[in-house]
């Protein structure tokens, strides 16, 4: 579902990688050897997910764009450290993207804004702000369905921590729930999602 993007023309013109999209792992190993065409393919595979996640956590489109760019530079720089036996390319990239976005929102001013939001008890639910339905419809529906199988506390904990970048301590404050409870709900919720989404090894 991420294959047919209008801006894949460059690789096509070069006539090198125009046939069928390669498996992400294969693309990664070429990126690790410094192949810029392969990197362009990697960008096309990941850009919407990486940007979408960062935007979701950071809220501000200009900052999200800046951080997305940093993430792709990091993916390029550390490509040789990617270990296929430790997880998929998408998971690797999204972990880096999420970490970057979170580091940014937890620092300085944005952190103050967030503290104010925590104090004011403002929060939103995972999917209320998701407006566009461009691609990944199936994946999105599947995630939505699986989130529906969680308890309210599991879903809220996972949503606040993952989509809004709160620490589990902050989540506990927001939900007025003991720390240990949030910790286990986060894990239980993710495990239930894992099983529902069919992520297993």
């Amino acid at each position: 579902m991420h294959a047919a993007k209008p801006h894949r023309g460059k690789a096509g013109q070069a006539g090198l990688h125009a046939v069928a999209p390669a498996a992400p792992e294969e693309t990664m190993s070429r990126v690790a050897r410094g192949d810029e065409h392969a990197f362009a393919q990697l960008y096309d595979l990941l850009a919407e997910r990486v940007f979408g996640l960062i935007l979701r956590v950071m809220r501000d489109p200009a900052q999200a764009e800046e951080v997305t760019q940093e993430v792709f530079v990091e993916l390029w720089r550390t490509a040789s450290r990617f270990r296929p036996d430790r997880g998929s390319v998408v998971s690797w990239a999204m972990t880096i993207a999420h970490r970057r976005a979170i580091d940014r929102v937890r620092s300085s001013q944005s952190s103050l804004d967030r503290d104010a939001r925590v104090a004011a008890g403002q929060q939103d639910r995972p999917f209320d702000a998701v407006a566009d339905e461009v691609e990944g419809r199936f994946e999105r529906q599947q995630v939505r369905r699986c989130l529906g199988t969680l308890t309210d506390l599991q879903r809220e904990s996972v949503g606040l921590a993952y989509y809004q970048g709160y620490t589990y301590g902050e989540v506990a404050t927001l939900l007025e729930t003991p720390l240990g409870t949030v910790k286990t709900r986060l894990r239980d919720g993710l495990i239930r999602l894992r099983d529902c989404l069919g992520v297993a090894k």
Binding site: G52, M94, V143, Y162, L193
Partner: peptide
């Protein structure tokens, strides 16, 4: 590793096209 794969799916579910200029 498994929970990160799971989280990646949560992240992919909010995919949004970045500005054209980013590429």
């Amino acid at each position: 590793a498994e929970l990160r794969e799971t989280a990646a799916k949560l992240g992919s579910a909010v995919a949004t096209p970045p500005p054209e200029s980013l590429r």
